[in-house]
């Protein structure tokens, strides 16, 4: 047996609620549980894909991990350090190790700043490069993300969406982080450009040993980039597994429905599409039982009463469902295999 290496990131039972309705001058009378007790780990150099539909809480979770949003409860260990116990100042210092790439390459770059300034800013904030070394470092970063190293003097509007996303990646890499939280990094890009950016992210990971928490709603993209995948529904993780296991044998009824809803690129394999009736329930208010019970085709009485815990289920897999028992692996695997 190898000595266990502590995970780079270990999130335990993280909770974030937002006030939903507020009386004038009063206390909020309803809450949205955006992140509702999430635990996950990311190993060094690994990609954990986080999938879920809009409103599932995946973006809030990503921001809570960086403390861009302060979580209400839970713990976040980064390389063994408890982030929630850190002062703002020490947290800021530690953010050097963990960076974020945003979805919108148009909104996330300051239009009045030159590209070289955008990329150099984190270097200045963290005191990482002397003034005379900065231009060289910026050129190096631009080259690393596949842009012309001489383009630092231009402004963001002179670049296409894909190029801007590369600038955002260069900015994140400037401080040599170990973890990058990528929040829908390719979803606003055209298909042909998406592939280029995904290739870049994979290359950089190999070269720099980066770990990614890759947040996306696109199941194909997540499968491609991830070592492991966690599926979120209404603020909770309902299933996590190695990517190939999850896609080949989804166990949770929601994961199965999600995969079955994706259009297949083969006109000979058209199939009944809507396997999931209804829509996600309102996230406001307290919830009893399983978060998926209102849409689950297999729902039982117990599901509406008891909240299923995320339990280990074979190697590297966890499932939160009353109906998925360890003995039913085979059957569930076959049924879920589409």
């Amino acid at each position: 047996m190898r000595m266990p290496v502590p995970d780079l990131l270990k999130v335990t039972d993280l909770v974030k609620r937002f006030p939903a309705g507020q009386r004038l001058l009063g206390r909020p009378h309803a809450w949205v549980r955006a992140v509702d007790g999430v635990s996950l780990t990311v190993a060094r150099g690994e990609t954990l894909g986080l999938v879920g539909e809009s409103g599932s809480g995946k973006t809030t979770l990503g921001r809570c991990i960086l403390r861009l949003i302060e979580p209400d409860r839970g713990s976040i260990l980064f390389d063994g350090v408890d982030l929630l116990s850190l002062s703002k100042r020490r947290m800021r210092a530690l953010r050097r190790e963990m960076q974020i790439i945003f979805q919108d390459p148009f909104g996330s770059l300051n239009p009045r700043m030159k590209v070289s300034t955008i990329i150099a800013e984190p270097l200045i904030i963290h005191g990482l490069a002397r003034r005379q070394d900065r231009p060289r470092r910026v050129a190096e970063l631009l080259e690393m993300v596949g842009l012309d190293p001489g383009c630092g003097g231009r402004y963001p509007h002179e670049f296409s969406g894909g190029q801007r996303q590369r600038i955002g990646i260069a900015r994140a890499l400037a401080v040599s982080p170990r973890l990058i939280i990528a929040d829908e990094p390719v979803s606003s890009l055209d298909v042909s450009v998406q592939a280029q950016v995904l290739n870049l992210l994979a290359e950089l990971q190999e070269r720099l040993g980066l770990a990614y928490l890759f947040i996306a709603h696109d199941l194909a993209v997540v499968r491609h980039i991830s070592d492991r995948v966690a599926v979120m529904y209404r603020g909770r993780i309902v299933e996590s597994a190695r990517a190939e296991d999850l896609y080949a044998h989804p166990l949770h009824p929601y994961t199965r429905a999600l995969l079955a809803s994706v259009p297949v690129r083969d006109p000979d394999q058209r199939r009944p599409r809507s396997l999931l009736a209804g829509e996600p329930p309102s996230p406001v208010g307290e919830m009893q039982g399983c978060s998926f019970a209102s849409r689950c085709p297999l729902v039982e009485e117990r599901c509406r009463r008891e909240d299923p815990a995320l339990r280990p289920h074979g190697e590297g897999r966890q499932v939160a469902c009353h109906l998925v028992e360890p003995v039913s692996v085979e059957i569930a695997g076959v049924r879920g295999d589409r």
Binding site: A195, N199, A202
Partner: peptide
């Protein structure tokens, strides 16, 4: 070719590198 697949098993070796179209529109 440049779109990764979801339900269909990915072709061997395609795990990391997608055959992207070079350049842009």
């Amino acid at each position: 070719a440049s779109r990764p697949r979801t339900v269909e098993a990915p072709p061997a070796g395609a795990r990391r590198r997608l055959p992207a179209i070079q350049g842009m529109v």
